[in-house]
Nucleic acid binder design. Structure first.
Lengths: 231, 231
DNA sequence: CGACGGCTTGAGGTAAGTCAATCCACGTGG
DNA sequence: CCACGTGGATTGACTTACCTCAAGCCGTCG
């Protein structure tokens, strides 16, 4: 690794954007000094910082493996990064078998989902969190071909759902009742039925980018066909 | 991938533990059917589910790469997994250069930190979250050799810190004042001084396992020397 | 039939949010 | 060297989202 960081460097001032949300990358950045932050700006103007990057941390391998960044990296204080050029990385990818690449890709998307969960907990209220989780699960079940409409078995208890969304079973139950009364969904007998997907997506303030469905390197290329109406 | 899943399988009933927290792994599990959850049980009896695993998701590559799991995986409904034996995976690792392995390891520890953040947000209050973040940063700065005592430059604004801990700058400021008044720490002029590391660790309910410091495959093996007193 | 696990409903209580004023340190220019 | 402006921190009064405890309900299974 050391030999890679001897190359080109770049220094960013406080609040400078190091890697833009949505960008496709030609190089990987390694923090040499300073402090940077992974963050996501939400539609309502709030922001969630998901991680701080200290010297020695890599900024954007996910952008490289997944093709597009699903969040932004900014300098907090003055920060200098080593730029590891595309060529160096490409040579790495060549040594990967397709299985290795699939594993790599899978862990990256897992992290992306974790980041989404952090945003949920940090900057969304109970309604939004529940809606977001349900909508995400709907898409994921669709993508793996476990359902073709807006219904799927979701065999968790309210207590488990509360543990996932970081709230009390009691409060979860209340909000669930609201969503039901509003005709958005029904969740009875361990089966979830989404009556109004568009409405659910709206209350969740859902953005699908973090699932990286467009570039699925996995076995099926027909994601659009399976979940296109939801994204 | 398909050819790997033709082998041995195992089925788990609801609430069965699929992979235990802290275990070292001999095989990787792939969810074939059912629903599983990554979760962590906290000392106060509460639990945080960090992700649901649907068919096609891998359970425990992190346990394989990082050596020990930092959380637990349980079946939610009846779940069957394909067991991919160690030998298959070892053969993968052989094709990795040490650089590839370093990258791999780095993304895995990143995910672990993300999971810690989810636990923070879901199951800890403002005090605990702030304390936890500060303590984690202290350790990370120590590990990369940026400080040797309990002081380090932490040049973020209160607003940024609030965005990271998922709260309001106002509330953050109040709690910060409490921690200061209690003599735990001081954070002035962008420099953090931890007066009482043990106390801070206690209010954070900090457990170091998720940082995977024991098995650092990175360039320095002297983590214990650098941060041993904190863990 | 009763028992049990899970869901629902209700009445308070508390942590954290909102809005807004004030304060303080620092930098800049007259 | 002081006046001023600015970004960030602090303080206060009030509101709200969510929690706690506790009782009641309902479907399932023995």
């Amino acid at each position: 690794m050391d030999e890679l960081v001897t190359g080109r460097r770049r220094t960013y001032g406080p609040r400078d954007v190091i890697v833009e949300d949505g960008s496709e990358l030609q190089e990987i950045r390694l923090v040499i000094s300073g402090l940077a932050a992974r963050s996501k700006d939400l539609s309502d103007g709030s922001r969630q910082i998901m991680a701080f990057l200290v010297p020695g941390d890599l900024c954007d391998i996910e952008g490289f493996v997944l093709r597009a960044m699903d969040h932004r990296i900014t300098a907090v204080s003055e920060t200098t990064c080593a730029l590891i050029p595309a060529a160096e990385i490409e040579s790495l990818l060549i040594e990967f078998s397709s299985l290795t690449r699939a594993l790599w890709w899978s862990t990256m998307t897992d992290s992306a989902v974790l980041r989404a969960r952090i945003i949920d907990h940090g900057r969304r209220d109970a309604r939004e969190r529940i809606a977001h989780l349900f909508y995400e699960m709907l898409i994921r079940y669709r993508v793996v071909g476990r359902t073709t409409d807006h219904t799927f078995p979701f065999p968790v208890t309210q207590e488990e759902l509360a543990d996932a969304t970081g709230m009390t079973p009691v409060h979860l139950g209340r909000i669930l009742g609201e969503l039901r009364d509003e005709g958005l969904l029904e969740w009875r007998r361990r089966v979830l039925t989404v009556h109004d997907p568009a409405g659910l997506k709206r209350v969740a303030r859902f953005e699908a980018d973090y699932l990286h469905l467009d570039r699925t390197e996995a076995r099926d290329g027909n994601v659009a066909e399976r979940a296109g109406d939801l994204i």
